[in-house]
């Protein structure tokens, strides 16, 4: 069994990551960390760089959970990549971070989280930044 977490280097992403580690060690599940980018801009602040990945890696090692770190660059949306990973790893749970937004902001922005919530085939745990 496995748990998929969508990671971005923000407080929300961190919160999701922390919670996912906790869930994974509780259930002795494999943790699949997905940090994707469409790769269509020179700079994507949501794409973790080498040092950040190394930091994640050491935290995962310290928590002693079985894990996979994915950084797909296929021009797909983050939602697609998370759902894809959940599908292929047969995930039992998806953990995502959620930003606080006003209803108007939600209307304009569209949302990765919304798509995951609507399309996932397994339970989704939405975490907010502390």
């Amino acid at each position: 069994m496995s748990i998929v977490v969508g990671y971005i280097p923000t407080p929300e992403g961190e919160a999701a990551f922390e919670r996912a580690i906790a869930e994974a060690s509780k259930a002795a599940a494999k943790l699949v960390v997905v940090n994707s980018s469409r790769g269509d801009a020179v700079v994507d602040q949501r794409f973790a760089q080498e040092e950040q990945i190394a930091a994640l890696q050491s935290r995962l090692d310290a928590a002693e959970v079985e894990h996979v770190l994915l950084q797909p660059l296929r021009g797909h949306d983050a939602a697609e990549e998370v759902l894809d990973a959940a599908e292929s790893h047969g995930a039992e749970l998806i953990v995502i971070g959620l930003r606080k937004r006003s209803p108007v902001g939600k209307l304009i922005m569209g949302s990765t989280a919304q798509r995951i919530l609507l399309e996932a085939r397994c339970p989704v745990l939405a975490v907010k930044a502390g």
Partner: peptide, 8 residues
């Protein structure tokens, strides 16, 4: 085209 993004 470069495909991997950087972060500033």
């Amino acid at each position: 085209l470069r495909r991997n993004p950087l972060s500033t």
